[in-house]
Nucleic acid binder design. Structure first.
Lengths: 340, 340
DNA sequence: TTGAAAGCGTTACCAC
DNA sequence: GTGGTAACGCTTTCAA
């Protein structure tokens, strides 16, 4: 042993391990990654030393060679509860592949999004997952070399990137048809903020289904946010109309839960007086009383498959551009036949 | 201009920019990072060329030099709704400092946690934020050189790392005293899973408060999970006792909401027949009907301050080891004086 | 089976 | 002000 650097100081390097053993860095590297090329005894000695001095390879240095960061960036406009379940799926798939999923939330701020894409174009992540509402404007797609991008939950507005998503129109249609099937004729819609592409699509689904059934779809409320408070507020205005609806289709579960709350507070019953449907199948809706009828969106799988598609893209494979997962109506306790 | 490499091919490098301009890489690097040291004209030329050929610095290479990854890892046992709000806080603080927050969820699997710490010890992140339940076992603290670690929401069990947290015992005490103050005497506790350190502390707070008030604390239910379903189930067993409680303190909002749901389903009223308190102040509790009385935990600030503390640690500063944020009771509509 | 050395793209020190 | 060049820690030819 030459001058031992074991004590304290900096993190051990390959060179230090090599020096300790009187070997070259090349040999130590091989012992760790391609042991079959080496004398078993040497491999053993290296491993023992590595353990003894607590050597850990430097991730950054390893990857400078290959250009991979093993990071992907999840860009999301707002951190909503549905996002949580998608994140679980993303995380699971990322983990399996040795990837870290970093969260970037833009709050609909285009400047902030631009910054994220700037960072990504510096090779800070090997790919990007775009979540509902996070728009990858064309500006940034042209300016720099960007890694693969996959849109999750909704298609990319510009149609530039592959997506793993659901058909929001069809899901909304199913919810409305469920209501119609129960016998409802006066069905209102709480549409959320039309700035959201997803909300707009759900609204379109509502309208088509109503038109297809020959029903008037004039009762509808728009809200700023997608919160229970906003839903309650919208419901209040709906209740104050001359002929209140017998059923309400809300653009998401949070709005729906708020609507239910307001109906109950107004002394009416759900679903006795008014039926309510949500969209997303959040835990929230299952927990509330009465439990919310809603449209299931496979959030976990959306995240998982989105990440897997991204990994394939990163690996240079080609993928199907548009993958649509099925939705399904979940009947619980907020919908029933109209009382009238 | 020598042989221009502008067209197509690989990502531009500092060397290419330098070659295009007949400058050295050192000068180009300075133009980008320390323009005040350079001839303004040179800086201008460099910036123009950088724009023209779309040069982006290579993050990996930059970081290999500086030893920083600008990543932090958030290790969490399970992705719960309360986690979402903490994550918002973390993300905001991280963003400000140019950091990415990567999510790693262990699902209480120690092996998986070990893997994360292995990665971190390879310099894959500059620090770790430990969220409720994620235990950094001593094994890994001794084995490798780890970057700074901060515990959030609860203290690190081993007391090794600084924390930004709340006093779960005190919070539980406040909730119970609120119930006692209303006149309740038979108060039950839905304790959640005792494997959770946080749940255990809340239980202790419950017990102390009961004892301090000279009340018997024999009614209490334990659950496997922290879900509304588990809360409903626990409530069912509580209701079937000879003398059902007039008030229930649940270890968290999800259990509480489930308990409320079961009481209503059983034909009793909340808070008319039974009062219920939760803990955490999740959006869920505000959305449900009746709105849940609960203990507020400043999730966002916990995340934000935890991240800021971590950043200070990474920067080599010393920090106060244990930071305790206040909780406060939020009175809503699930608590009232006992009817009897 | 092992070693020497050339990168990977930056930054920073030391000259000029 | 600017250029040369040695790191940063690793992987991987190419030679021996």
């Amino acid at each position: 042993m030459r001058h031992s650097k074991l004590a304290g100081g900096r993190q051990a390097t390959l060179a230090i391990v090599a020096a300790e053993l009187g070997l070259s860095t090349a040999t130590v590297s091989r012992a760790l990654h391609k042991p079959h090329l080496l004398n078993p005894g040497t491999v053993e000695r290296v491993k023992t030393m590595v353990d003894r001095i607590g050597y850990r390879p430097n991730f950054l240095a390893q990857n400078l060679k290959t250009g991979r960061t093993y990071n992907i960036l999840v860009v999301v406009s707002v951190l909503t509860p549905s996002f949580l379940e998608i994140l679980r799926g993303i995380q699971q798939a990322a983990d399996k592949a040795g990837y870290f999923a970093a969260i970037a939330h833009s709050g609909y701020d285009a400047r902030r999004e631009d910054q994220y894409f700037d960072q990504v174009s510096s090779g800070r992540a090997d790919g990007v997952l775009l979540l509902s509402g996070a728009s990858a404007g064309e500006a940034r797609t042209s300016r720099y070399r960007l890694p693969p991008i996959v849109s999750v939950l909704d298609a990319d507005p510009a149609g530039l990137f592959p997506a793993v998503r659901v058909d929001h129109r069809a899901g909304a249609g199913a919810a409305v048809n469920h209501l119609i099937g129960l016998g409802h004729r006066r069905i209102a819609h709480i549409a959320g903020n039309p700035a959201s592409r997803i909300a707009r699509q759900r609204r379109e689904g509502f309208l088509s289904a109503m038109v297809a059934a020959g029903l008037a779809a004039d009762e509808s409320a728009v809200t700023e946010d997608f919160t229970p408070e906003a839903g309650a507020c919208a419901m209040e205005s709906l209740l104050s109309s001359r002929q209140p609806p017998t059923a309400v289709f809300a653009a998401n579960d949070e709005l729906a839960v708020g609507a239910v709350g307001h109906i109950l507070k107004a002394g009416l019953s759900v679903p006795g007086d008014i039926s309510v449907t949500g969209f997303d199948n959040l835990p929230l809706g299952r927990a509330c009383t009465p439990a919310l009828t809603t449209v299931d969106v496979p959030m976990f799988d959306l995240g998982r498959l989105g990440m897997e598609k991204l990994l394939r893209l990163i690996g240079g494979e080609t993928v199907v551009a548009d993958e649509v997962l099925p939705t399904g109506i979940i009947e619980r306790s907020t919908t029933a036949r109209p009382s009238g």
